[in-house]
Write a protein that binds this DNA or RNA. Sequence first.
DNA 1: TAGTATGGACCGACTGGTCTACTGGATGAA
DNA 2: TTCATCCAGTAGACCAGTCGGTCCATACTA
Lengths: 191, 191
Amino acid sequence: MKRPTKERLLEGGLAMLLKHGYNDLAIQELLVVHGIPKGSFYHHFRSKEDFAHQVIDRYMQEVHAGLDACLGDAGRPPLERVRAFFELSREKYRGEGYMGCLLGSLGQELSGVNDAFRFKIEGCFSEITARVAVCLEEARHLGALPRESDAQHMAVLLLDCWEGAALRSRLRRDPKPLNAMLDFYFRSVVR
Amino acid sequence: MKRPTKERLLEGGLAMLLKHGYNDLAIQELLVVHGIPKGSFYHHFRSKEDFAHQVIDRYMQEVHAGLDACLGDAGRPPLERVRAFFELSREKYRGEGYMGCLLGSLGQELSGVNDAFRFKIEGCFSEITARVAVCLEEARHLGALPRESDAQHMAVLLLDCWEGAALRSRLRRDPKPLNAMLDFYFRSVVR
DNA sequence: TAGTATGGACCGACTGGTCTACTGGATGAA
DNA sequence: TTCATCCAGTAGACCAGTCGGTCCATACTA
């Protein structure tokens, strides 16, 4: 009872893209590893680029699921919920051997030459910060953040710094940069 | 009176690596653009990988020069000197069309599969933070930072967040993420 | 003239992508 | 129940193009 081919390709592609990046990912190898013939790949995807876009879409589905699970948890104060989302991400990174964030690595690799990816990944970041900002705004209303705070601005800041920490975590194969960054941010932000 | 071939290759390679990344950089194209034949390239460099390492070395020379210029400026308070270095970096990014940081982009692209690059780039980051930390420690002694601060830790944090902001800056071709991050950091750090 | 650097034809390996033959299960008419 | 039809999906040989890298003849210069 094997999973559908397309699903297996997207899932395997995610892991392989995270490790190899886009240009170093050989379709051939992906197919050999999963025992899938080339015809199937080009039946499901128009091109390698189309494939990568769909892998990102799939990745974002997981991200939004994580945001749903963490930010929606009405029983906890909003700042804790935001932090919980990033800690969940960190745990996901752990399961992948601390290879950082797919959006960050593809963003770095491709945004110099490919505007389709550049806009797409920038859009993904915006989606995330928009949802985080809602929660931060709630925190502000509840007095957990200074009244003059700009939730949207703070959400962008948080994600940007997170991505930097994720790169360092990838370089060191180590979660410490992620934890250090979260500690710093949440200590700073509440004053 | 043209510049030495090797010098031109390193300089042109820096710009091209920043834009294309490693795997998407075609040696052939680099050579055509600069009107240099292949034989010259492989006379000066053992391989593409060796070339990239030397480009990084060259990049780090510039970084250290920037650190010398900014951190050594004894007339200004140490925190200002640190900030000046990152603002100098930002200005360099501007001249390149806000393509972010070479260390960040190569680090993301290659650290998944190539440990030589991974350790090298991690080492570059360490060099930078070590020098920044000296200056932060001075600030701590002068009372510009809380007594209980850990300068090394804070320097790492600063660089990590900077790299995240540099990625966002690259995605948006915009210096705002860099400025926002610096404002946040230096406001938070002095309390 | 020895040693360094240039010039560029050439190579095998590998890449993303195409093409056509085939398979197996769903469908529907008789 | 049977059989013909259909088509999404599988299978993999094959292709043209591009890549990093080699090689050796030549040019320059100390």
